[in-house]
Design a binder for these strands. Structure first.
Lengths: 200, 200
DNA sequence: TTTAAATGACCGACGGTCAGTCATTTAAAA
DNA sequence: TTTTAAATGACTGACCGTCGGTCATTTAAA
């Protein structure tokens, strides 16, 4: 036998060591040779760990998303009102804190659209379901507490889609100039509609 | 002097003659040489009319979108209720009729995300604003008629984004298995909230 | 009517880039 | 010393975009 490398860990290390270069230049301006060089490995070695450039993006998204989810979980638990909890969720689409992940996420969506792959779709579904269940729990509890009307549950998937939709539009058009404002405006308005008024 | 070709028309002709081949194989499986050959022109000629493959997609989207808009305009005018008019708009994301355009639109969004270009962004903004104004007019008229509450106006951009958001999610996840159903459910629920109940 | 000149459309060979492969080397462990 | 996982960079083939040259048609002078 010879050296046994923790392939999974090394894959992560290579991915993260490419992060900065990609953020600076954009993934599409970089060749595999350049990426490998910046990671301090040969081109062939890159292919020992990744099938192609897309998989590198995928790996970075997975790593950043893990960290991101932990953080969000914490933030949501600490938010006091239902509305605040929901805003924590949308936060991803405009917060400075999530800027980096957002850039990779954008490229990830784009490559997923171009080249739909089982593995990616499963990952994206997991992310979707993870946050959907969060949203669902939050809403259900609020319904149980009689704060919002039961019909709110039917708005869940749509509520979920608005973030992604506005995010894409903000990138591909000039028609959404302030994503944060637009998202908040929508949530605030919707909440006035689903909130049960206290009868004093 | 020599033969003068209507370059604009020929560009359209080439684009449309590639449509079928692209729908069959996907744009990314095709080389410029193959596309040119299928259009009955030389590779060099292709570059007389298009900067690259992306521009071909752009041209096809523009052409199909033109036709599509005319059709939508007609459909919206013929829909009776506000809700129906809005559903005509969302129709794009799931109708069999718009399947082809949707495929190109998807590629168009993907390439726009990867490589944001002024020209494309302007085009996308025009599309956005065009349909946004439609939606706005419909909603405003309905408010004037006292059918729905005035706050509905604040939901417009979000309403607009839901379509795009769910569309993307339906392509990149398994979590939206029936786009039409999900969209309709959302609209129906929202409408029960914004509709002004008649006091009998 | 003839034909030389002008011009724009068309083309495919070519240079360059880059993704992905593979034969070889390296070095740790047995 | 042998074995073998890991690393590597030279190599190849595919494809992009360019460019010099050809062809077909029109113009206009003879």
């Amino acid at each position: 036998m010879a050296i046994i490398i923790d392939k999974i860990q090394k894959k992560k290390d290579i991915a993260l060591s490419c992060k900065l270069l990609i953020l600076e230049n954009g993934i599409h301006a970089l060749s595999i040779a350049e990426l490998a060089k910046s990671a301090g490995i040969g081109k062939g070695t890159f292919y020992e760990y990744f099938k192609n450039k897309d998989e590198l993006i995928f790996e970075i998204v997975i790593l950043l998303m893990e960290k991101h989810n932990l953080k969000k979980e914490f933030d949501i638990a600490n938010a006091s009102t239902v509305k605040d909890k929901i805003k924590v969720f949308y936060n991803f689409f405009y917060s400075e804190e999530d800027r980096e992940l957002r850039i990779f996420y954008k490229d990830f969506i784009a490559t997923s659209l171009i080249n739909p792959q089982e593995e990616r779709k499963i990952f994206q579904s997991k992310c979707f379901d993870y946050y959907y269940q969060w949203l669902e729990q939050i809403i259900e509890e609020s319904i149980r507490r009689n704060e919002i009307i039961p019909e709110s549950k039917k708005l869940l998937k749509g509520l979920f889609a608005i973030g992604e939709g506005m995010f894409i539009s903000s990138l591909t058009t000039y028609s959404i100039d302030n994503l944060e404002k637009e998202l908040n405006r929508y949530i605030d308005t919707l909440f006035t509609l689903i909130t049960i008024k206290e009868t004093k």
